[in-house]
Every structure is written in C-alpha cells, then in structure tokens.
C-alpha cells in the first residue's frame, strides 16, 4: 500500500503530468484553499464570506463560484487573480447550485425558504424562484439541459423540474435526507444519495421511478455510520464513487451490477469530490480531518493526503 503510494508519487515526479487547479471550500475557516495537482500542495488560501459550502467553476473556467450561506450570497472568485470580484443574488442561505451546459443559467438551492432560485449568469440577475420541498439541497441538471433535479432533505424527494417552463414535472420519493444527485453521462440513470437512509437510489429519469438501490455494508462498522453524500461518475459511466461521510470511506461501485466492489479509506467525514479533467485523479473533501484525499482512479487507491482549512466541504477543479 505504502509502496504503491510511493511508486505513484515517483511516477508523478518523473513525468510531470498536466497540472490542474482545485478549489476547496472550508466551511469553518471561511476560506477557499487552492491546490496545485502537480505538486499536490496548497498554493493559496483565499478569504471568502461566511460558511462557504457549494463551490463550482463557471463553464468557461474564468470564475469560481462559492456559496457563502451565512452571508446569503454566492461570491465569484476570478481564477486568474484568485480574488473575489463579484457576488450573485442567490436568495437566503445558498448551499448547493448547478448551471446549464452553456453556463448561462445558475440554479441555487435555498435551504431556508424551500425554493430553488434561478439566476442569469451573464447579467448576474435573479430570474425567479421555484417552490420545492422542505430543505432543498442536491442540485444537478440532465445532460440535455432540459431537466433540473433538486433533492429536498426533509421532504425526502428528488424533484424533476422542466428548465424551459420552470415547473415541476415529477417528484420521486427516496430514502431519508437526500443530499446529492448525479446523472449518468448518457442520461439513462439519475443517482441520488440518502444520507440518513444510508442508500443511493437509482432513478429512471424518463419514467420517474426508482429502479434500483445501492446499499453498503462495511464489516465492523455500524449501519448508522454509513451516510452517503457525494457521488462521482466516470465519463464511461462504468464506475461510480460514493462518499460515505462518517464511515470515512469512498465506495467504488460497478454501475452495471450496482454493487460495491471496493471501499477506499480516506479522511474523516468525507462528503464531496471532484475528478481532474483527465480523470486520472479523484479528490475528496474530508471535513473532520481537515484534509483532501487524492485517489488514483485507475488503480483505485488513495495516494496522497493534503491538509487544507477547517471543515473542508466542497471541491471544484478547473476545466
């Protein structure tokens, strides 16, 4: 294990691969850590607003948007200067958000008033709100851009919203406290994690029904400690990585059998993750141990741990 880690590190040093830049939101420190994926070090720490959580690059790679919930806004970080340059009218307590393929429209989950706020990213103006269930959280958009998904944590549903009419078209009940939603790239399935339910529901996005469930079992670990949150799907849709929160592990799931093939031990209370664009690495945020784990995707091994700020929450990597 150690040897494999060393080996990978050596290989890295020998052939300096394409370097990417990752941005990590630190919920407790009110900062964003900038990680260079060549040296695997934190190159800068940016002070942001209060309680930074959801974080994502704009499609053009020019800005990083970070939801600062306790300041009721989303801040824009200029990726060149790495300074805050603007804010977005997100509505109260923004947490997670998603954007359309063109990068023109942003959809924000507002936990405090059961709404999804629609923002015009070019004009940086609020276009309207969509009423959803209690405590909206997970947000994603279908590959064709036609369907927006929002999960509500206390209502326990995945809401399907037509992006054209901005109206709800279906509501699918999943297990308790749905936190995160992710489409397969071929749009054939929607995966929704239930933190308290301890499962990932697989939904047919056409029929709006749950067609399968991923369950987890780790010897020696009580069921309550397994709390799935973040989901990462490889581009070929063959493998899903699922963060299991206080179980301190990432589950590797074969999407054909919907079974876990491996559990990777990472840092404590792992929630969110991001692939490097070449999909060689997967980076995970480990809240309680204040670090980021680097997973070699092909080898399915943890190769590195990087210390960041307090309670790292979300992560995004430059396209």
């Amino acid at each position: 294990m150690l040897r494999a880690g060393l080996l990978s590190a050596l290989m890295l040093a020998a052939a300096p691969a394409h370097a990417f830049i990752a941005y990590v939101s630190n919920e407790k420190s009110n900062t964003v850590s900038v990680i260079d994926t060549d040296s695997w070090t934190v190159t800068k720490t940016i002070k942001v607003g209060q309680r930074p959580r959801g974080i994502e690059f704009t499609r053009d790679g020019k800005f990083v948007m970070v939801a600062v919930g306790d300041d009721d806004t989303i801040q824009m970080i200029d990726a060149k200067t790495q300074g805050i340059v603007d804010t977005l009218p997100s509505g109260p307590d923004p947490e997670l958000f998603t954007q359309d393929a063109a990068g023109k429209t942003l959809y924000v989950a507002n936990e405090n008033d059961n709404t999804v706020t629609v923002i015009d990213l070019e004009k940086r103006a609020r276009l309207g709100d969509i009423q959803v269930g209690v405590e909206p959280e997970g947000m994603t958009i279908s590959p064709d851009g036609k369907t927006l998904i929002n999960t509500s944590e206390t209502t326990n549903m995945a809401h399907f919203i037509d992006t054209g009419s901005r109206q709800l078209v279906a509501n699918v009940l999943v297990d308790a406290r749905p936190r995160f939603a992710e489409f397969k790239h071929d749009a054939s399935e929607l995966w929704v994690s239930s933190e308290i339910g301890g499962t990932v529901s697989i939904i047919d996005p056409q029929k709006h029904v749950v067609i399968g469930k991923v369950t987890f079992e780790i010897p020696g670990l009580r069921k309550e400690a397994i709390q799935p949150v973040g989901i990462g799907m490889t581009k070929d849709d063959k493998t899903a990585f699922i963060a299991l929160g206080p179980a301190n592990r990432i589950a590797v799931v074969d999407t054909a059998t919907r079974k876990v093939t491996k559990y990777l031990l990472v840092g404590q209370r792992v929630w969110h993750m991001a692939f490097t664009p070449d999909e060689k690495y997967l980076l995970t945020t480990n809240g309680v141990s204040n670090d980021v784990s680097v997973i070699d995707v092909a080898a399915q091994k943890v190769i590195k741990t990087i210390q960041v700020g307090e309670l790292p929450w979300g992560i995004t990597i430059a396209p």
Binding site: D129, Q131, V132, Q167, V169, A170
Partner: peptide, 18 residues
C-alpha cells in the same frame, strides 16, 4: 408574490398528476 404563484403552478402540476 411571484414566488407564491410559482409555487401554485407547481402545486397545480402535482395535482394534475394525482
């Protein structure tokens, strides 16, 4: 107010389904 109306439309949709 707008929000409320959007909610209503959403509700109408849910209701049609049922």
């Amino acid at each position: 107010m707008i929000r409320w109306m959007v909610g209503l439309i959403g509700l109408a949709f849910a209701a049609t389904q049922a």
